[in-house]
Amino acid sequence: MTRKISTARVTRRHVLVLTGAAAAVAGTGFLPSIAAADKAALDAAIKKTIGDANVQSGRITLDLPQIAENGNTVPIGVEVDSPMTANDYVKSVHIFAEGNPNPQVASLHFTPASGAAKASTRMRLLKTQNVVAVAEMSDGSVYRETVEVKVTIGGCGG
């Protein structure tokens, strides 16, 4: 993971400053300029995936730890409220991580035969950041949900 590279290169002073910032549960990344770039990359990735569809809120439940013990393996569960019938089902759920080098995480494709638009996996998060799920329904409507996950920077994990 990239974290490994970055920690290998930073000086002890940087480590202290960085971990201090993370530990204070600052929430929004380390530097405002990087956070902004992250958001632009996220918006671009979402637009590339769903086009200009009108995005609504609701229907998605994201199951994520509030604090991830280790950014290498963060469990994520997603569930979208849908009858999952031939005429009314969830086509896809796209998962994004705003603060990762590449915001795309996974796209899950369901069918009426799925029975439930419910799935779980494990993902990598570089740092404390927003995780976004975007659901595309069979009728073309689009829903979005965002959850912040705080990522611990290890003491003995460095």
């Binding site: 202290l16 530990a23 509030q66 604090i67």
Partner: peptide
């Protein structure tokens, strides 16, 4: 745990490794 991390933040600012 959250409190723990806040506590830790203060410690880290001054801390030895």
């Amino acid at each position: 745990r959250m409190q723990a991390k806040q506590v830790f933040g203060v410690v880290a600012a001054t801390a030895a490794l």
